[in-house]
């Protein structure tokens, strides 16, 4: 696991998100009302909507395209929908947001 510094938490709007481009594709960073930050793949399991543009509340993000609700801890769509997104570990130290990525296996 490699930890990458992404920047200050204030660069991610509260109750919203940003995304980062990575070798593994876009990853959405979503910040809730308690300043917790979650990282999930930036493609909604429904039709690939950009989750970084969704509404964040608690541990849920609402996809901006068709309002699927994704549990940010489990990475799973909530009923009645089915599907999941990959989740990534995030650490916050002194306002710095760190993203954990597996090293690409050669």
């Amino acid at each position: 696991m490699e930890w990458l510094a992404l920047g200050n938490i204030e660069e991610i709007p509260a109750l919203g998100g940003r995304y980062v481009e990575t070798p593994q594709g876009q990853i959405a960073l979503l910040r809730n009302e308690n300043d917790e930050v979650f990282a999930v793949s930036n493609r909604c399991p429904h039709r690939g909507g950009p989750l970084s543009e969704g509404f964040v509340s608690g541990k849920t993000v609402f996809c901006p395209l068709h309002n699927w609700q994704i549990d940010l801890e489990k990475g799973e769509a909530m009923a009645p929908d089915h599907g999941c997104v990959k989740t990534f570990p995030v650490r916050i130290e002194e306002q710095q947001v760190w993203l954990g990525l597996e090293k690409a296996t050669p």
């Binding site: 990458l4 920047g7 660069e11 709007p13 940003r18 980062v20 481009e21 690409a104």
Partner: peptide
């Protein structure tokens, strides 16, 4: 409008 990604992580 946050048009650009927060960061680009090179391979």
């Amino acid at each position: 409008i946050h048009a650009a990604p927060l960061r680009r992580i090179p391979a």
